[in-house]
Design a protein around this nucleic acid. Structure first.
Lengths: 127, 127
DNA sequence: GCTACGTGCTACCCAATGGTTGCACGTAGC
DNA sequence: GCTACGTGCAACCATTGGGTAGCACGTAGC
């Protein structure tokens, strides 16, 4: 219950106005955003168009406009897209930075695991 | 050693090219697996131990053993961990490869977006 | 000013997910 | 053989998440 009375934040730049919840770091949001196939298709279509509105995207994807809007909201919070108004249209475009940053973070993590595993293996075998 | 090679339920040797692009539904599983904070803590603890059982992990994380087992199942399907039996224990360890592959795939995607955006910008401005 | 298109918000539905508890079974240790 | 520990399976609960439909509002075009 307590149906989310946070006014769908009409903010533009800051983000969430923390109401007691832990920040839930950016990585979670990026991964969660990328986990959904529809969202990845939206990103793909968006990258192809350069810029597009929710209505346009809904026309070429098999989901309703409202679903696209929700997805764009999630992608925006994850920092993977940004939106701006042009007249009465709300246009969105992809933002490559966050994706690249997360990619490099993952790569470093994989390298860390690799090093750790190698060290443990040395200890177990040769000592 | 008691290597009952019970890897990721038979789907381990699908012959993916080592540095090729993952078929994008494997990406879904990796992203979904990484999206959960508890799962990332499990991966972290697993990387620290080198190898650990669900019971051990449950002892140092604030969730039940059953929850850990479920998470390990998801991580296994995503190819981020592998498990093998040692006597009556089921030990797991992290697998860095899939993480690195996904990281590089993301990095290339970010680069693609960048190129595309630059081209569109040139068209819009210079033209 | 009137109309039309596009957007934003709310309410609602259903499936998936993270979490728990309880119990049955196999394996190790005595 | 008996006991104890660890695992695996199943049922169950609460919350989140993806999706839809409907309506109100603003902006563009005439």
């Amino acid at each position: 219950m307590t149906t989310d009375d946070r006014t769908a934040d009409g903010r533009a730049a800051d983000g969430r106005a923390a109401d007691g919840e832990p920040p839930a770091d950016a990585a979670s949001e990026v991964f969660a955003a990328l986990a959904d196939p529809t969202r990845r298709r939206i990103l793909d279509a968006l990258a192809a168009h350069g810029e597009a509105t929710a209505t346009v995207l809904a026309a070429e994807l098999p989901v309703s406009r409202q679903a696209i809007v929700k997805h764009l909201g999630i992608l925006d919070r994850a920092g993977l897209v940004v939106g701006h108004r042009a007249g009465r249209e709300a246009r969105y475009r992809v933002v490559p930075e966050r994706l690249g940053i997360t990619a490099r973070w993952m790569d470093r993590l994989a390298a860390t695991w690799d090093t750790r595993l190698a060290a443990i293996k040395r200890l177990a075998e040769g000592e």
